[in-house]
Computed example of a mutant assay.
Amino acid sequence: MGMFIGELVALSMMAFALGMDAFSVALGMGLFRLRFKQIFYIGVTIGVFHIVMPLLGIFAGRFLSHQFGGIASYIGGVLLLLLGMQMIVTSFKKESDSFVSPMGIGLIFFAFSVSLDSFSVGLSLGIYGARTLLTILLFGFVSMILTWTGLMLGRHFQQWLGAYSEALGGSILFVFGLKLLFSF
């Protein structure tokens, strides 16, 4: 029982750390003018990706070497850099239609990019034989809650920032991408 509680605490801390990544990026995305229904769907989508990606990582980790984990973080960093640059450039154009938005393909791109870290963590956990169901449910739930929190805070700040909100959101994503790329 004590070993289970220790594993639960460790996995909860990892879920929170991975969810903070989603929170940081959601804060930037929340600067879009989002309706509550969109915020709900974005949070659920991020939660689902934080279940699927570590699950894939756990399965892959049981078969692949531990060295593969670092590549996923680099891919995530590049994706966030591109997304951030696109948002910044779009904010300076007079056109109101943005290529990148937290809906449709933009949402899938967003969810995939913030869940790549959970894939690499899943690789490591797969190698060490962590409890799969407990891991993926914790990762999904915590990231969903933190994404909603980030989106709501971003939505609140968007009202203050007005026209500069998309540039700020892009800057947040860009800096987060740099963090992923240079954290190794």
Rank of each mutant, 00 (worst) to 15 (best):
S143Y: 06
L133T: 14
L107I: 04
S115F: 02
A167Q: 10
Q67Y: 13
I108H: 07
F139R: 00
F139V: 00
G6C: 08
L125R: 13
L151E: 07
M29D: 01
V100M: 15
I172N: 07
L138V: 03
F141R: 05
I58V: 15
M152Y: 13
L173Q: 03
G106N: 09
I5Q: 10
F109W: 14
M14L: 15
T135W: 06
S124N: 04
E7L: 12
S12R: 08
V25S: 07
D21M: 06
G77P: 12
F99E: 13
W160A: 12
V25D: 02
F157C: 02
L8C: 10
S113T: 08
L181A: 08
Q38Y: 02
V25W: 04
L107F: 04
F176L: 15
R35Q: 09
G129C: 03
S171H: 07
H66V: 12
F32Y: 15
Q158K: 09
L31G: 04
K94N: 13
L153Y: 10
L64G: 02
G129N: 05
F92W: 14
S165P: 11
G162N: 11
F68T: 14
Q67H: 11
S118H: 07
L82C: 10
S96I: 07
M53C: 06
H66W: 06
F32L: 13
G170T: 03
W160H: 14
M1D: 09
F63T: 08
L34F: 07
Y164V: 08
K179A: 11
M87F: 06
L8F: 15
L168E: 10
F68G: 00
V89I: 14
K179C: 03
T45W: 03
W148C: 05
A167T: 12
F23L: 15
L56V: 13
G30A: 05
F119V: 09
M87Q: 13
F141D: 00
D21L: 04
F176T: 15
V48I: 15
L81T: 02
G30C: 13
G19S: 01
G122W: 08
D117V: 00
S96Y: 05
F119G: 11
D21E: 12
V9Q: 10
S183E: 15
F139N: 00
K179R: 07
M3T: 09
V44P: 03
L81N: 05
S115C: 09
F182G: 06
L83F: 15
R155V: 00
S171V: 08
I71Y: 11
L173A: 14
L81K: 01
L18N: 13
R62C: 01
F16S: 10
L8H: 04
G154W: 03
R155H: 14
R33T: 07
F49D: 02
L146Y: 11
T149S: 14
L133I: 14
S124T: 10
M53N: 11
K37Y: 05
G104P: 03
V52A: 15
L168M: 14
M152P: 00
